[in-house]
Computed example of a mutant assay.
Amino acid sequence: MVMNIPFARPYITQEEIRAVTEVLKSGWLSMGEKTVMFERAFAEYIGSKYAVATNSCTSALFLSLKVLGIGRGDEVILPTFTFTATANTVVHCGAKPVFVDIDEKTYNIDPDSVEERITDNTKAIIVVHYAGQPADMRKIMKIAKTYGLKVIEDAAHAAGAKYENGKKVGALGNLTCFSFYATKPMTTGEGGMITLDDGYLADKLRILRLHGISKDAWKRYLENNSWYYEVIEAGYKCNPTDLASAIGLEQLRKLDWMNTRRKKIAEYYNEHLNDLDIILPYVRPKIESAYHLYPIRLVKYNRDKFINEMAKRGVGTSVHFMPLHLTRFYRKMFKYKKGDFPVAERVFRSIVSLPIYPQLTERHLEYVVRCVKEILKPR
């Protein structure tokens, strides 16, 4: 019997539904008290002094670059092996994205490649914690300190993950950006968060995320219904809603449990797929991954054919990611070409992600494993 197992599914329970209903009944739907509560709870969870909520991780990355003063003529180093939003935000700031290759075991940014690409125009490094596994921040921070560079962590995959020192991701770089998109370790439907320890930058982020005005509607409401605000900068519309933040508060309470479930699913795959001609995910010692993705690499079997065969059996898969230097825009705009980053290209040709989310039961996992074996190891 063919089962229907989608690639990803958000874990939503009655708690989230009740939280949204309460907000709907309250009459305050946009950014307000729930967002303030969510920011405080998330900062406490991460161990950062401040957290600033946004309407997406893309907005979080863009605002982070803006408050660091990244602009025209500047260069920002980042891995080519990431979702396009990471690089797009650099372009929207008027700066140049400078791609580097990845480590072939972890698929994270290769620190040695970073140092090779630094110029007088380099202002920042964006580190992507691929699949939920923290990158080698010790080496990255050392390089940043040596050359006087800022570090932004793209932790879209890594809510709840931990570095080697036991601290949660979000506590080392100058700013860390999280995603709460529907497929991420925790979700608000759409949404993001920036964690940081710099109070000046936190205040500036709050101003920039809502038109550049001095007081949002919630603050004006609290201050004796004073309508007055000042326009401090030409800001943006990047704020979340209380509907999203209410979901986020409930998801945050479940995050550690959800990450543990994903880890157990990864361990099941590791145990039952280790006799196949594939490369299983590698996790560095001493860190804790959020296990957002379970990417395997096919050694001999065609990747696209494998995806089609899995789809015939009702199992969703995906590819993370096409290296950005191979995409049309970045080839044309910045003259990147095939062969520039051989490790990322080699990984891309063979990589495919299997389903990994809390609702998967042992029966589901048995079926996924059976389908993989039917395709790769036919009788």
Rank of each mutant, 00 (worst) to 15 (best):
I118M: 07
H320I: 07
D120V: 12
E309C: 01
W28R: 15
L273M: 14
K66F: 04
Y357W: 06
V128Y: 07
P185N: 09
G73I: 07
V283A: 08
P355Q: 06
S289E: 05
F341G: 00
T84N: 13
E116R: 15
V352R: 04
L324P: 02
F306I: 11
G47S: 03
D110Q: 00
N108C: 15
G69R: 09
R9P: 01
G166M: 02
R346T: 14
H272N: 15
E309I: 00
K286M: 11
H92M: 14
T176W: 00
V169S: 06
G166E: 06
R349D: 12
A234F: 12
V114P: 02
D74A: 13
S26F: 10
P97Q: 05
R117A: 15
K142N: 15
G173Q: 00
F99E: 00
I126R: 02
A135G: 15
L201N: 06
V76L: 08
A85D: 15
D242N: 14
F180R: 06
K335I: 01
N174T: 12
T89P: 04
E345K: 08
R138V: 13
E374R: 07
R303F: 05
A53L: 08
N270P: 00
E44S: 15
R9M: 13
I307P: 00
T54V: 07
Y107P: 00
G339N: 04
S59H: 13
C57V: 11
A171Y: 10
D216S: 07
G132I: 01
I102H: 05
E362Y: 12
E345R: 07
N302D: 15
R349K: 15
L273C: 10
A144G: 06
L360Q: 09
S318G: 05
H292Q: 12
T122F: 12
K305C: 08
E75S: 05
T21I: 10
G47E: 10
E230M: 09
R18K: 14
I278Y: 07
H325W: 03
L249N: 08
N121M: 08
I232E: 14
R209D: 06
V343D: 01
F306V: 08
L222Q: 12
A217V: 10
I143F: 08
N274W: 05
Y294W: 09
I77D: 04
M193H: 01
L24Q: 11
L24E: 12
N174H: 11
P111Y: 05
Y291R: 03
K145T: 09
N259P: 02
F99G: 08
N88G: 03
V368F: 03
M3L: 13
T122D: 09
